[in-house]
């Protein structure tokens, strides 16, 4: 059952509908997409008793204002926005009441889950907006009325989830050797793992574009395009790596020097332009 649920009054810089994305269609050129910080989105769904595949709103750098069209149960997770009464703690939003998300204290992406899920029509099996492929629901705009479904699951009875806030300062993540590490000069890996990179304002859901020490290629020539997953550190001719996030291209033709392990990509998705990121060699390899 779906009824009117939320009226959008303002969106901030970018608000999209996201769920777990479109796995299984990469062979057709359709990427996975889905929430950039998967763990935060999953937590939001759990806290309001939604199934794991329910859609939530991904709010980039706050600024979302919504009005409840009926009595709703909501929660925010991820980046803690000023003014959210429901951060990591589900709260009622009565019919006619507004939820106004200010700028987050730290982190970049806030997930707003509503009990019942954002029930816009799925596209190719998912309600995720893929900004690179141009698939899925349109980017959320002021004036949108977002339908909210019904959840078949009981409420978990959790008042507050104790999770760490996204850090404001420098973040260090482990990095694993990538498939094309041998395409680079011997100095490239030490440079990648020994210096700090800065997240630039060119970053988006496709990837974090990093500024810092350029990584020199040993092998020139073209790499035939090959499949990529999120967490890939792809090195374009500029030499500064791009860390692929949720809406990364399905295949890419620049060599991948390393990979951030999948769970750590969530932390990277919370980094803001200007924040410092370090890669530590090693980390957890695939079992």
């Amino acid at each position: 059952m779906t009824c009117a649920g939320l009226t959008v009054l303002a969106t901030g810089p970018l608000t999209t509908v996201q769920d777990r994305g479109r796995p299984g269609q990469a062979a057709l050129g359709v990427g996975r997409s889905g929430a950039a910080d998967r763990a935060a989105a999953a937590l939001a769904n759990r806290l309001v008793g939604n199934p794991p595949d329910a859609a939530v709103l991904e709010v980039t750098f706050g600024g979302l204002v919504v009005r409840a069209d009926r009595d709703l149960l909501v929660v925010t997770t991820g980046a803690r926005c000023a003014g959210s009464p429901a951060h990591n703690a589900p709260a009622a939003l009565a019919a006619g009441a507004e939820l106004r998300l200010g700028v987050p204290a730290s982190g970049l992406r806030t997930y707003l889950a509503v009990r019942g899920g954002i029930d816009v029509p799925p596209v190719l099996g998912s309600r995720s907006t893929d900004v690179l492929a141009g698939l899925g629901p349109a980017v959320v705009a002021a004036g949108d009325v977002l339908p909210v479904g019904a959840s078949p699951l009981p409420l978990p009875g959790v008042d507050l989830a104790a999770v760490a806030e996204p850090p404001a300062g420098e973040v260090t993540v482990p990095v694993l050797l990538g498939p094309r590490a041998d395409w680079f000069d011997v100095g490239a890996w030490p440079a990648l793992t020994g210096t700090a990179y800065t997240v630039t304002s060119e970053s988006n859901r496709v990837g974090l574009r990093l500024a810092g020490e350029a990584l020199t290629r040993l092998r020139t020539g073209e790499l035939p395009s090959e499949g990529m997953v999120r967490g890939a550190l792809q090195v374009p001719p500029s030499g500064t790596p791009v860390l692929f996030l949720a809406d990364h291209p399905v295949t890419g033709g620049y060599p991948v020097i390393g990979y951030v392990a999948d769970p750590d990509v969530d932390r990277c998705a919370q980094l803001r332009p200007g924040q410092s990121l370090r890669f530590r060699a090693g980390g957890r390899p695939g079992r």
Partner: peptide, 21 residues
Amino acid sequence: VDVVPAARTVLLVTDPAVTTL
């Protein structure tokens, strides 16, 4: 969860909850 053929490679994307590399 995904098998991605390309010019010289096949990428296999796994669900770590179900299997190991």
